[in-house]
Amino acid sequence: MITCFDIGGSAIKSAVAHSPSDIRPLTRTPTPLDDFDAFAAALGAQLAAAPLEARSAMALSITGVVDPETGLITCANIPCIDGRSLAADLEARLGGRVVIANDADCFALAEAMVGAGRGHRIVFGAILGTGVGGGLVIDGRIVSGAGGYAGEWGHGPIVASAAGSPPAEIPRFACGCGLAGCLDTVGGARGMERLHRHLHGAERSSADIVEAWLQGGSAAARTIDCYVDLVSGPLALTVNIVGAGIVPVGGGLGRVPRLVARIDELVRGRILRRTDRHLVVPSVSKVEPGLIGAALLGLEPDPAGSSPAPA
């Protein structure tokens, strides 16, 4: 039994994990962003609400990347923990063992072990949320990569210069990572909105664009046509590189089955392997996938075995 946390830029959610299939929510509190003492105290307060036997180990799913060699975290969304040896610092403050993984990695682990990826050796979890993220799990273990970076298919100057039928010119939008032309600039919810603005000169939310498309709107259909074209190429390349047997999709856009089905159709037509089975599928984790992934990490009986696999 452990206490697990799902930590984002707006909230810290906690739960007690009796097993990967028995996760009982505890509390939710705003995330302190600029004061590490307050951040540690917020976790401590939630830990104190857990049964005594669940307080000796903590597992964190967190926005940000932990370098597996140095233990240092890079986390722009929560400045007070950026650059810290977070696991060591929390162990010193709160006691007990602390394991940490990126939230996208935890999502991928949850889907691989108890979600849509069950029975597959290689699972690539794709997140189409506000932006584009992902995680890679092989043989039940997270692949963290050098510096903690793996599964980041949203970054790199790879966006096509034209998309849709007939082709529309796509600019190389500047990305928050410092590059230009990254999939993250057009592949998430904000990217879909940017794409719609470029194509039609109109401001619409991603939710409105998707709803209009589902209702047969022509402008929205044009945006979605370009969107799935832009997303499916990089995702097909990712599948070819890692050999994924299945790609569960999470995030807000991942909850639109018809959109995921369109991406799946295009991806299967662009990969080297030919298959009639669905490859890109909606995620199925019912509880918060970050909490499930953290629980899976923390419940690993061998502490060394719970560390992410090297690149």
Rank of each mutant, 00 (worst) to 15 (best):
L109G: 03
L109T: 07
A110T: 14
A110V: 07
A110P: 06
A110K: 09
A110M: 13
E111Y: 07
E111S: 06
E111D: 07
A112T: 12
A112H: 10
M113C: 14
M113P: 01
M113I: 14
V114P: 05
V114R: 12
V114A: 12
G115F: 11
A116W: 07
A116D: 08
A116T: 05
A116K: 13
G117H: 08
R118C: 13
R118D: 07
R118S: 13
R118Y: 02
G119M: 07
G119V: 07
G119R: 12
G119P: 09
G119D: 10
H120W: 02
H120V: 06
H120T: 02
R121L: 08
R121W: 00
R121H: 13
I122E: 07
I122S: 07
I122T: 15
I122Q: 02
I122D: 09
V123M: 01
V123F: 08
V123H: 02
V123S: 03
F124K: 11
F124H: 11
F124I: 01
F124Y: 15
G125E: 03
G125P: 05
G125I: 06
A126W: 12
A126F: 14
A126Q: 15
A126C: 15
A126T: 06
A126R: 05
A126D: 11
I127F: 07
L128T: 06
L128A: 14
G129W: 11
G129T: 03
G129S: 15
G129I: 12
G129Q: 08
T130Q: 03
T130C: 07
G131L: 03
G131I: 11
G133Y: 10
G133E: 03
G133V: 05
G133K: 04
G133Q: 03
G134R: 04
G135T: 02
G135V: 03
G135S: 04
G135M: 01
G135E: 07
L136N: 00
L136Q: 01
L136T: 03
V137Y: 02
V137D: 00
V137S: 05
I138F: 02
I138S: 04
I138R: 04
I138H: 02
I138L: 12
D139V: 04
D139H: 09
G140T: 09
R141P: 10
I142H: 01
I142T: 04
I142R: 00
I142A: 02
I142N: 01
I142V: 15
V143G: 01
V143D: 01
V143M: 14
S144T: 14
S144P: 01
S144Q: 11
G145V: 09
G145Y: 02
A146Q: 11
A146W: 12
A146K: 14
A146D: 11
A146S: 13
G147K: 09
G147R: 06
